[in-house]
Amino acid sequence: MANRSIQYKVGLFIVTTIVLVILAALFIAYKKDLFADLAMYRLQSESGEGLTQGMPVLFSGFEIGKVKDLELSDKGQVVITITVPRKHVRWIREESTFTLEKPLVGTPRIVVRTENPEGKELSYSKVVPMKTIDDINEVIKKAQPLVERIQSVADNIDRMTNADSELNKIIADTRKMTKMLSEKKSLLEMATGDKKGQETLMKTLEQVAAITETVDGTMKRIDGMVAKADESVLGDKGSIAIVNNILSDIEGKFKRLDTLIDNAITMSADLQGTTQDINLVRKEVEETISSVNKLIQDVRNSLPFEQKKEIKLP
């Protein structure tokens, strides 16, 4: 029989390890809210794709519950029952939104969003519709135009590399040109096709050079003429200087003329005043004559003299 010491050590080892395992299991159970009071809610989805029992329910990235059950309703929709520990119930309100998110990497999850945690608590009897966001489909949708562009580029490359393509024709032509160039002495000979043509072209070029020389000389002479004309027109004693002097003189004369005109205007104003004075004198003379006439008539009436038909005015 094994001695008591061995039995004690073995017993202690077994009991300690089993206790540790049980404690670890209980701790995990506690952390998994296995002993917590759970509240249940019901969600509704058009499809059960991506939904599994035990799927996490997240709020602000923190797991607050799990999917407990999935069932098909009479209307053909999926009813999802989720459980949430009582301590997290305040995040599940009537206006809370539930979204099934299927990320590109990682497991799908139901995400809860609650704007007002003080709102009315969601009731089990109310079945809340759930939205779905599928990252993979979103990526495919976004990548579709890119794939189409790549396809288009591939088609273009395919067309370009086709045996009958323009690119291949250009390459073939280039090859021909290179071959021709290697067989001819110069590019000119290749371009004209024969030696005579090259010689003719060379002669023409020489003639063009002679013409250019002549034109050059002519241009030099024209330049000299232009320089002389420039001197006679724009020089110190040129036409422009003389015209400038004449214009200055005319300007001075115009200034004097302006003074004369001003004087004439003043004189005209004075003359107008004088005319008005003459009118007044005339009026006074007329009045005087009229008074004298009246006086004469009075005298005539007073005196018994034959009245003469004519009266001599003073």
Binding site: M1, A2, I6, Q7, K9, V10, F13
Partner: peptide, 17 residues
């Protein structure tokens, strides 16, 4: 039997303890 348990205990001692 007791003898089997005894051997078992000794073996656990040698193997694990």
């Amino acid at each position: 039997r007791p003898l089997t348990v005894d051997i078992l205990t000794t073996q656990i001692y040698f193997t694990a303890v």
